[in-house]
Computed example of a mutant assay.
Amino acid sequence: MRQTKIDEFLQLENHNKELEKRVKEEVAKNREKDKLLFQQNKMAALGEMLSNISHQWRQPLMEISSIFLPIEAKINMDIPLDNQELLNSIQKLNDITKYMSNTIDDFKNFFLKEKEKINFEILEQINSTVNIISSSLKQHDIKLDIIIQKNTHMLGYKNEYSQVLINILNNARDVLIQRKIQNPKIKITISENKNDIITKIEDNAGGIKITPIEKVFDPFFTYEKINGSGIGLFMSRLIIENNMNGKLEVKNNKDGAIFTVIIPKS
């Protein structure tokens, strides 16, 4: 009887050792899988960043081209160039190239948590952002209204805030053009309440005609966009939620779509 118990104990001990060995092997396999998954995620993130840099740069490059074209035309036709016109063009080019340089820095640091937030004036940043895309809006006779209920300051990443604005404005512009809207308009409204700073961007393009409307934030969703990458609004929501602790919402009104950026004051 005693020998039987000893045998059972030894069997159990061997079984436990075998089980422990298998557990260690599975843990090691899972760690390898985790490493592989981490590398895959890293490569996917890198690809995503490169795609977004391309997306972010496309419009500024078009703006640069639109600035040079009238100057080149006047030179070819021996039309005198006004000094103030040249200075204004140079200033716009400086703003665009500075934005493009800042975009590289922003995307390079996108996944780093130690980035430092700064306190910036919202009106100044909106004006800087609008300057970058103003030529394309004028080209398509799109009226832009900016309503600042209070010129407040925001604590955050000002260039990423600009990127979100440009993504939303570009989407509104593209839909207005695509649908051939008469008297196309975009309105930016800045307001605040006790806890948040609120940026609303509205258009009169007729609204987003999908259900649920939140699908516009899905990666690679390109509803009604020609040659769109489908990453602009997806990245915009990531920037607002992950980097600025805020919310990016969308809804329709009777005239079109309203995108609302909500950033907490503290």
Rank of each mutant, 00 (worst) to 15 (best):
N227C: 04
F9N: 05
N242K: 12
F217M: 02
L248Q: 00
L36D: 05
I96F: 03
G256F: 04
S236L: 02
E116C: 04
T189F: 05
I213T: 07
F217S: 01
N245M: 08
K117E: 14
Q182A: 15
L81D: 10
T103Y: 00
N109V: 03
L248I: 06
I146G: 04
I67D: 09
Q178Y: 12
I126M: 09
H15F: 10
E25F: 07
P80N: 08
Q149P: 01
R31F: 05
K265W: 07
K209D: 13
R173A: 09
N131V: 01
I188A: 06
H55F: 13
K200C: 09
G246S: 01
N167W: 01
S128C: 09
Q59R: 05
N252M: 02
T199S: 12
N183D: 15
E224W: 01
E124A: 15
Q125Y: 08
E85L: 11
L46M: 11
R58F: 07
K33R: 11
D218G: 02
P80L: 08
S101Q: 09
Y223K: 02
K5E: 13
N183M: 11
E48S: 14
N52H: 06
N88Q: 13
K200Q: 15
L238K: 10
L123T: 15
F38E: 14
K150N: 14
I142T: 06
D78S: 15
S162R: 09
K225D: 02
T4V: 13
I181F: 10
F234T: 05
A44S: 09
N52G: 03
D34V: 10
K117N: 13
M43P: 00
K113M: 11
N227Y: 08
S89D: 12
